[in-house]
Structures are given as C-alpha cells and as structure tokens.
Design a protein around this nucleic acid. Structure first.
Lengths: 349, 349
DNA sequence: CTGAAAGCGCTTACAG
DNA sequence: CTGAAAGCGCTTACAG
C-alpha cells in the first residue's frame, strides 16, 4: 500500500489491480464504466487510478478488441489555408468523438502520397480522409490502403479506373456550378471577352470549373479564344508568372474567372505590373473565399466554400461510414455561394 | 498453398508464416531486415508477404517493444497560416523518419488543450510538440502529459510555476529583437509618434514584442502615450474593430508596429475606413510574413519567421531529444528578419 | 540459421 | 459481483 511502481515505467492495469487487491479484469471493467462492478470496489479502484496517475493505453486496448481509434487525414497541401481550415474542422469533430487524427501531408506529390498512405496504414486507422494530390491514381491509392479501410475522397476525383474505387465515399464542391455563377456574374456586369485563368487540366476540379465557365459562355452566346484559357499552378507565384499570356493574342480579355483565390490574387499582381488596375481596368473572380479575399485591394469576388464546415462534414461522413460499413457509397456535392465584391467591376469605359 | 485468409480479417504474421512454412519469428526477422535469415528463406517470405498483401501492425510491434512511433502535435490555431505552415514542416520531417503525426487543435482554449493532451497521451506518443493556447498553465499541462514524455514548447511560454516544467525543450522566435527592428525602422523613416498595436498581454510573445518596441523607443529618446498601446485579439477582425482607439487621444500616432500580420492587415482596413491610406498617410509593420503580406495593398513590411522551417526544426529537436533523453533541456531562440516593403512609408507631409 | 515460448497492456467470455 | 485464463499481433531472448 502507498508504494508506486518504479519511475520510468508506465503505470499499467496490473499496478492498479495490485494496488487495491482486485483482479485486472475488475479494473478494466471500472475503466470501461461497466455497471457490473460494486460501488465500493469502483470507488477504491478509481482512487487508486488517480493515486498512481494511470494513463489508459488505448493501443493495447485496440489490439485486443480489434478496433481502432484513429482516422488518417491525408492532404495534398496543408499549407494552403483552405486545407488548413478543413483540417481544423476535421480535428474538431474527431477530437470530440474520441478519435485521434493521424496527419499526413503529401505536398501535391503522388509518390509521397503513396508513401504516406502506406505508413499511416501501419497504424491501422479506422478510416481515411484523402484529398488526393494532382494526378493521383485510384488503383495505386487502392493498392496502398486496401479495401478494408473506409476512405472518403475529398475535393477532387482520382484518376485511372474508377470502377475499382466506386465503393469510396466522396465529398466534392459543386465546382461546375460555382464557376458558372462567377462567369454569369461577369457576363451580367457587361463583359464579353472573359478568360478562364489558372489551374491544371490534370485536376478534376479544374476541369469542372472550366466546364461551368464554358456552360455560361455558351448560354450567353459568347465565343472563347484559345489564349483565354491559361493553365498555371494553383498558387499565387505561378499565377503572376503566367499572367502575360492572357494578353498575348489579338483579343485581350476584359475579365477572368480564376481557378481559385490564390491564382486571382496572383493575377492581380500581374495586372498591376502591366499597369492595369484590377477592379477598374480588368474584372476578376476567385474561388474558395480564403481569408485574404475580403481584404485584398480590391476585395475579391469569389465563391464561399466554408472549408471548416467541410472538414466537420467530412469527419461526420467518415464516422457514419464506420457505423454502417455496408451502406451504399455516398457522393455529396456541396453547393457554393457567390460573394460579389469590388474586383468584378463592369468593363472600363 | 495459394489460399488467402478469409476476407474481412487482416493478414497477420501467422498467416505469412503458415503460408510459407516457417515460424512467426522468422517472418518477424525478415520484416525487420535482420541479416540472420537465409537468403532463400527471405525471398520466399517476401514473396508471401506480397502475395497476401500483408500490412505491418505497428501498434502491436510498439506494444511488444515498448516503443512508440508517433509524435503529438498540438496547436493553438491550426487555421492560422503560420501554424498550418509549421504543421506542414513538422509532418514533412516526421514522415521521413517513420513517425506519424498525431494532430490536435485547441482553438486557443486552455480547457480543450488539456482534453486534447489527455486524449493524445492515451495513444502513447513518443514526444509532444505544443504551441500552447493563450493563458495555458504549465502545471496543468504537466499534469496532463506526465513527466515521462518529452515535450517541446513552441512559440510561447506557458504560465504558472515554470520550475516544474524547466525540463521541457523550447523553441521560440526572437520576438523582442523582431519588434525592436521594426520599431527602429519606423524611427529611421522619420516617425516619432509610433504605436504598438494588437495582441494580448496574456501572451508571452506579445509581452516580448512590446518590450522590443519599448527598447527602440527608449533608445531613440521617444515617449510613448497610453493610447498608443492597444490590445486586440491577434486576428484581422478584432484589429479592424479596435483601430479607432488609436486615434482617441490628443496625440494621434503616425505609425504603428503591429503585433502580427493579421492585425496589421486588419488595421489597414480600419485606416481605410477612416479615410487614411496605409503606406502614405500612416506607416505600419507586421510580424510573421504570412503569404498575404507580400500582396496586400500596400505590401506589408514585416518580420520573416519562416514557419515551415520552424516546423522542420521543431521536429528535429524533438527527435534529438528522443535520442538523448537525459541531455540538458535546450532553449532555442530563432532570429527573425526584417522585410522592408511599402507599408512602412516616411511620415506624410 | 530457425523455432518454441513468453510477454507487451489490455479485454472478454467463462466459471464461480 | 469478481477472478483465472486466453488471446489481440507482434518481438526477443533462448535453445537447438
């Protein structure tokens, strides 16, 4: 009585059992809140748990019970505020549910993605939330994660043979509708020569946004010049670098629907460098509504996607899947909302 | 031969051993790359591992070996780009070293911080990287994490009795020097009435930055008015809201050293709302060099802290600590670098 | 070079 | 209501 186990070793169930003369089974029942155990015994055990500073070893319990208490969250770009907010939302819900988030960041590299998934799988996550890297292949991802662990695909589709991964749940933004809304808005402002700027054709979200753009242009009877469709990396830096191409042809556009906010902000810089003032000489829209969209000069018209709420939603979807492993796969398309700000001005006189 | 274990059950060492008629011990040796095992046997085992799609159960191995392969990363605000970049840096290094990152986000709540730490501890991380919530208490954190698990304190000091936690490693920015550099720069531009704007006195980093500011002001023989020292939440929104207080006194400042970039960007908005043009009518500096600092209008003079590199450094520090558990605690102060941009203009004529 | 046995810290039927 | 025993998937001395 009163003695603690040697320092440097963690306190285990056995230490507690020995400390208050009950069996390990009884301590385990107390820990798991079983009603089977006598009030008085429970009190003694709980006191001893406190006294020795017991820390539950969840890994051991998971091993015995063949359960898991972790969810893997694999993101193509954690440094992007959109995904950072998303991760915060995921972690918020998981934390409240007793799950721990295993984080993996792939830096938009498909090689690293496979390595990260392989490494995380060894920790036996109950489920996986994956925002795939650009060019990620469904077959390879499937090979890395196996078919036992539920996976929720977020934000973009993977490439390759989708039949093999049609059991995955999906959570996507309504990219096409978003880009259509933005383009329609530019058209309503009076623009006729409208570019679609940025993103990579390799990514499904870029294809969808371009489709929305084309839809709006077609519906308005507007034609699209080849040099109005510019690809660039979905970040600010490359957006600045490529912006000259917008003005390479005869018919320079007066507005651009941009792939995302980062690209739009980069384009603003590029416009400045050409002596054009965005929001006066040239109209543009973004996508994402990242924090800086509201405070750029001019403020950026964009599409709100509320990434934190998406994160919460993703966590809830994967938790639901754990409840009903055999329910049919669910594909959720999240509507996005157009926020009109000063950057989408009417054409300059 | 050729039969796979029933679907739905994971493949284990025993399945592999049975599949190629060796003992589990031998398979284990193959997995761990032991030179003891015969070339031919190794080849057979490796083929069988592939064939059955074996996935190593690291949790079980950790249990047996009494080791851990995870590091807990607990952040006060993951949605903040500074911490998101930091997390990406941490994960980059840990991923390359075979560790997995257990993510925890506290949303600047000390209550949640303790809950998150308690929950993560049950997963037995080898070490903890903690960027504490504002007002976090050292004793309570210590009680939550115990004294067995190495902890690296990042970004800010905890409160309370520090003697109890002087065995923790620390990685801090040189806040005082950074704020001094910014203030000296404003003075060199010709400003005399310089405010220190934003942050909470509860946070050690705010105190340090204020100290650097006072140091520069004192060295230049400049006095400081009470209404030049404004507290606000370290985000854009509250920075806008509080900005009127800067101009409440008789002696309005002509410049402000801001607590961080978010606050500086918020102040810019507040200035605009008063009809003042930042970078012409009022000079300001930030702290952090977040992505938007370079693209705000005007671009923001700030202090580069390279959060991603800090993340990598934090991961390396904690890994070193795991190598040498009994080395004396290390406190690392990271120098910061002043980036001069257009927002820190000379006083308006 | 390979195998039998014990054990990491837990949980869960099964007796009593 | 409580305890003895087996077992989750691995590793590690120890024999042979």
């Amino acid at each position: 009585m009163g003695n603690t186990p040697p320092v440097g070793r963690k306190v285990t169930l056995s230490d507690i059992a020995a400390g208050c003369d009950v069996s390990r089974a009884t301590v385990s029942l107390v820990l798991r809140g079983s009603p089977l155990v006598n009030k008085h015994t429970r009190a003694r055990v709980e006191e001893e748990l406190r006294r020795q500073g017991y820390v539950y070893n969840r890994a051991a319990a998971n091993l015995r019970r063949r359960t898991s208490s972790s969810i893997a969250l694999v993101l193509n770009d954690l440094a992007n505020p959109f995904f950072a907010e998303f991760a915060a939302g995921v972690d918020e819900v998981l934390g409240n549910t007793g799950y721990v988030t295993l984080l993996g960041s792939t830096g938009e590299s498909t090689e690293r993605e496979l390595a990260v998934l392989g490494s995380l799988m060894e920790h036996g996550p109950a489920g996986i939330i994956l925002s795939p890297a650009e060019g990620s292949d469904g077959q390879q991802v499937l090979a890395a994660v196996g078919s036992q662990t539920p996976l929720l695909l977020f934000n973009r589709e993977v490439g390759g043979d989708l039949a093999a991964c049609d059991h995955w749940d999906r959570l996507f933004l309504d990219n096409q509708r978003g880009a259509r809304l933005a383009t329609e808005h530019l058209i309503a402002q009076g623009h006729r020569r409208i570019a679609f700027y940025g993103g990579h054709l390799g990514s499904s979200s870029c294809q969808q946004r371009r489709a929305g753009y084309h839809e709006a242009m077609k519906a308005a009877g507007l034609s699209v010049e080849a040099n109005w469709m510019i690809e660039c990396m979905p970040n600010r830096l490359d957006a600045v670098a490529q912006s000259e191409h917008l003005f390479a042809g005869r018919e320079a556009p007066t507005a651009a629907a941009c792939y995302n906010d980062a690209v739009a902000l980069g384009l603003m810089l590029g416009l400045h460098q050409r002596g054009l003032q965005p929001g006066r000489d040239f109209a543009l829209t973004g996508f994402d509504d990242i924090a800086e969209a509201a405070v750029s000069a001019p403020p950026l018209t964009t599409l709100a996607v509320t990434p934190r709420a998406r994160g919460r939603q993703a966590a809830e979807l994967i938790l639901q899947r754990l409840q009903e492993p055999s329910a049919p796969p669910r594909q959720t398309i999240v509507p996005v909302q157009l926020l009109v700000r000063a950057s989408s001005c009417p054409p300059h006189a």
